[in-house]
Each structure stands twice: as C-alpha cells, then as structure tokens.
Nucleic acid binder design. Sequence first.
DNA 1: CCGACCCATCAACGTTTCTTGATTCGAGGA
DNA 2: TCCTCGAATCAAGAAACGTTGATGGGTCGG
Lengths: 108, 108
Amino acid sequence: MTTATLPATARAARWFHALSDPTRVEIVRMLSHGERCVCELQNVLGAQQSRLSFHLRVLKESGFVTDRKDGRWVHYSLNRDALDEIAAFAAAVRPGKHAGSCATACCP
Amino acid sequence: MTTATLPATARAARWFHALSDPTRVEIVRMLSHGERCVCELQNVLGAQQSRLSFHLRVLKESGFVTDRKDGRWVHYSLNRDALDEIAAFAAAVRPGKHAGSCATACCP
DNA sequence: CCGACCCATCAACGTTTCTTGATTCGAGGA
DNA sequence: TCCTCGAATCAAGAAACGTTGATGGGTCGG
C-alpha cells in the first residue's frame, strides 16, 4: 500500500532490500515450489519460529509473498508480479538500448 | 572474487543487498546511460563525494560496476552480467514451472 | 616544485537491521 | 471449558549499515 505512492527508485530499493538477506532468499526459493506453511520452512531451514516470522513479514510488506489462513496454519506463497517487476528493472537499466544519450560530461 | 566461492543463495543476497539502497539504485540508473565519473554522479545526485565513493565501492564489490582510471578521473560503468544474473534469479524462482514438486507437507 | 583537482579511505556517530527468548493470540481437540 | 498447537508480536541486545568531516594519495597544470 505504502509502496504505491513512492517514487520508482525508492520502490526498487525496497524490493531489493526484501531479498538482501540469505534467509529470505532461501524462503523465496522454497516458495518457488509452491505454498508452504511456517512450520515447513522452519523444519527445512532449521530456523527459529520467531525468526521466520520476522523475515516473512518483511517479504509480505514488500509484496513478495501473500499469506492464506487455513485453520491454525498460515500458508505463504510467492507473488510472481513482484518477481516480474524485478526482472523488468534489470532489463530497463541494462545498458545497450539507450547508451550514449543523456550525456552530462563534466570531464573531457 | 570472494563471491565466486559463496553458495548461490548468499551470492544472490549480496546482489540484492547492493541494490537495496535508493542512492545505489540511482547510480545504477545513471550508469545505464553509459559511463560516468564520480563528479558527474555527484552533480546530478547532489551527494557528498565521500558518500558516493562509499556506495560505488559497495556496487563494485558486488560486481555491479567496474571502474576505469583515466588520468585523475575514474569512470564507472555497469556490468550487464550482474543484471542478467538478477533477471535469471527472478525467472528461476518464478512459480509455475516446477510447482507442486518437492512437497514436504507437515500439515494436512 | 607547488598548488589545484579528483577520488579513496578513515574514524566517529546515529540509525537500522537481525537474532533471541518470552509473551500473546486464535483455532482446534479432549 | 481447558489444554495444546501454530503463528504473530514484543523487548532487549548485538551487529551491520549509511552519513559526515577530515585526511591522504595520485595526477595534471603552472
């Protein structure tokens, strides 16, 4: 929600920050296989419950994952739109297309 | 160099960490237009010289930029391989392809 | 040689982030 | 109802991060 009104560069920084931690990268990797509940992540990653909860919140607030309540379990899954936006950023800043334009040379 | 021997997930986390700061995202944006020296970045971004030096070092150590000395100037440019690797990561973890496999269900 | 210039590095400081353990909350089962 | 279980939240501490100002090291022009 808050991300909607942020300038593009701050939004991008937020996305990348969400993936800047090894634990969160692992979570994303696991979720790429499908939905997982916290206890599954806990078993596989060997991490404390409250630690995972912290990282899942970061991922959720940045829009990378969504949660679904089912009884006393909460299942997390990846939001592919966020991944697409990251790929789009990488493609947009990839040099080649508009190289040479926007020159602001101060040094010869 | 150090990144070469790191496990894949730690490497990915490093890449994303490098882009987790708005200033660094701006730098990458500028460099996507071509080579820039520090003084140009300084003028456009309105940042202190030592601040830029710090961020450029982070980008350089993570493999996103390379530097080229030319007299007393140092020109920075983007390394497109790093951007490609990021895009590859986003594509690899994108759910759909291998969804359903690797199930480790602990909850019904 | 001397000064000006571009850039990297350093120490110091405040801020943010991450981890840990304890507590709390809600949903079920006995 | 009471107890258990999955998960979120909180407080406290350690560690990493980013900014600032000062210093140092090359490189060029005079």
